[in-house]
Design a protein around this nucleic acid. Structure first.
Length: 268
DNA sequence: GCCCTTGTTACGCC
DNA sequence: AGGCGTAACAAGGG
């Protein structure tokens, strides 16, 4: 599923569209912004591809006037199963929980570029969202910039499971279900622990695990390349670290894989 | 054909 | 105001 790491891979792919002009737009009618996109996008040039959390942003400019004038930002959110295809090349071939196929009927946004290229978002389950000038203020700091001080402030007033707080995009933007399980596994923090019970050294462990393992997973191709990978999630083998029986349970409404032996922070 | 999966939003309640 | 729990959403795949 597209978490922050997949969004970063998509952003890198979308960079190929910088300095290219949008000629035509096809967009799924279930998008609230459909009419707006159809009228605003044609004629605009993509001048930058940015990312914050799971949100990819394409900065647009009106190049019919000289010099070019910034016009709007196209926000792309890929939901659970959205894939980005630029010029026929998919940035991620196999997306966890998505379909292995690329059915044209699942194209939800299709930008025809002036040079004949195409930027396309293919999404079987229609949860991808496309918005002009998306509201970035509702998002917390990006997951790759997370700090102990910020987490400590957010954890202090929350008694729910630390996993639920990390998945809250207004606290930190970019953690998804798999990355959170991976980070808490390495940080030795129990995902069910009440957030407010974590001490600064425990929060440090979460920050350190994030800074160490998420970039490594990005290098390997995404959120499915960690220790708690899809095979482990499905089979729940003994803990790869200490051999103890791992648990598979719902925490905060999400399937969670964890080791109750070494993920013992905070101690009881 | 039922049930699993996930990210986000919308509720109602406290 | 804001934390919290839950339902709803989509739809392919097992």
């Amino acid at each position: 599923m597209p978490e922050g790491l997949e969004a970063e891979i998509y952003r890198q792919s979308a960079e190929r569209c910088v300095d290219r002009t949008i000629e035509a737009v096809e967009v799924d009618d279930n998008q609230a912004s459909a009419d707006e996109l159809r009228s605003a996008l044609p004629g605009s040039t993509i001048v930058a591809a940015r990312r914050h959390g799971k949100l990819v942003m394409l900065d647009l400019a009106d190049t019919t006037s000289m010099p070019a004038v910034p016009s709007a930002t196209l926000g792309l959110h890929f939901g659970m199963t959205g894939r980005l295809i630029v010029d026929g090349e998919s940035a991620i071939e196999q997306l966890e929980y998505s379909s292995g196929r690329d059915d044209p009927a699942w194209d939800r946004l299709l930008l025809t570029l002036g040079d004949g290229g195409v930027l396309r978002i293919n999404d079987p389950r229609r949860w991808a969202r496309f918005d002009l000038d998306p509201d970035v203020d509702r998002l917390g700091p990006d997951v790759l910039d997370v700090t102990t001080e910020h987490l400590a402030a957010a954890f202090g007033r929350r008694r729910v499971a630390v996993k639920s707080v990390l998945l809250d995009q207004s606290v930190v933007a970019g953690y998804g279900n798999m990355c959170v399980d991976e980070v808490l596994f390495h940080a030795a923090v129990a995902p069910s622990a009440s957030a407010r019970t974590l001490r600064p050294e425990h929060i440090d462990a979460i920050v350190d695990a994030t800074r160490e393992h998420l970039p490594a997973m990005l290098d390997r191709g995404g959120s499915h390349t960690g220790t708690i990978d899809p095979e482990v999630r499905a089979a729940v083998p003994p803990c790869p670290r200490d051999g103890a029986p791992m648990r598979r349970e719902q925490i905060g409404g999400r399937t969670t894989i964890w080791c109750p032996v070494h993920q013992s922070i905070p101690p009881v």
